[in-house]
Computed example of a mutant assay.
Amino acid sequence: MATTKTIKPTESELEILQILWKKGNASVREVHEELLATKEAGYTTTLKLMQIMHEKGLVKRDDSSKTHIYQAAVSKEKTQKHLLNKMIDSLFGGSPGELVMQALGNHKASAEELEEIQKILDNLKNNK
């Protein structure tokens, strides 16, 4: 199984994981149909990617029936945390503050999002 330190999904694998996180369990056909809504993809390409993901420990496969059913073997939260930490280290010199300033400077946050960010900042200040 993949551990937090070895979670290294490619962009295409992340697209498949997003579908599996949303659906829970899905066949290759179901995943493929979801992918087709946003991009051109061949069924055999989707199948091969999912087989590779199984070998890497990113997905689990139930092959007890003719149609194999897949589910994510890594949690969305752990994957997000791992990839975010990797991005902070590699793109922002290890500074989460630089990431936040870049994100807020380039995208308009709603009033609700800003309020939630302020609550997080207040909690961080109070806990230090």
Results as ranks from 00 to 15, higher is better:
Gln18Phe: 11
Gly94Cys: 05
Lys86Leu: 10
Asn106Phe: 04
Gly42Ser: 15
Ala41Lys: 14
Thr79Pro: 00
Thr79Ile: 02
Leu49Ile: 03
Thr79Asn: 00
Leu104Thr: 15
Ser65Phe: 10
Arg61Ala: 07
Ser64Lys: 11
Ile88Thr: 08
Asp62Pro: 10
Glu30Gly: 00
Val31His: 02
Lys23Leu: 08
Leu47Glu: 14
Arg61Thr: 15
Val74Arg: 01
Lys22Gln: 04
Ala73Ser: 13
Gln80Asn: 05
Val100Ile: 15
Lys78His: 12
Glu30Arg: 00
Gly94Glu: 09
Ser90Gln: 15
Asn85His: 04
Leu58Ser: 08
Glu13Asp: 02
Asn85Thr: 06
Lys81Val: 04
Ala26Arg: 03
Thr45Leu: 01
Ile16Gln: 06
His32Tyr: 11
Gln51Asp: 15
Asn25Pro: 03
Leu83Gln: 05
Met53Cys: 05
Thr44Trp: 12
Trp21His: 01
Met50Arg: 11
Leu17Glu: 00
Val31Pro: 09
Glu98Ile: 07
Gly97Thr: 15
Ser27Trp: 03
Ser64Gln: 10
Leu104Asp: 10
Ala72Met: 06
His107Thr: 09
Gly105Ile: 01
Leu58Gln: 07
Lys39Ala: 12
Glu77Ala: 10
Glu55Met: 01
Lys22Ala: 07
Lys22Asn: 08
Lys48Trp: 10
Ala103Glu: 13
Lys76Arg: 09
Ala37Cys: 08
Tyr43Leu: 04
Gln51Thr: 13
Thr44Pro: 02
Phe92Asn: 10
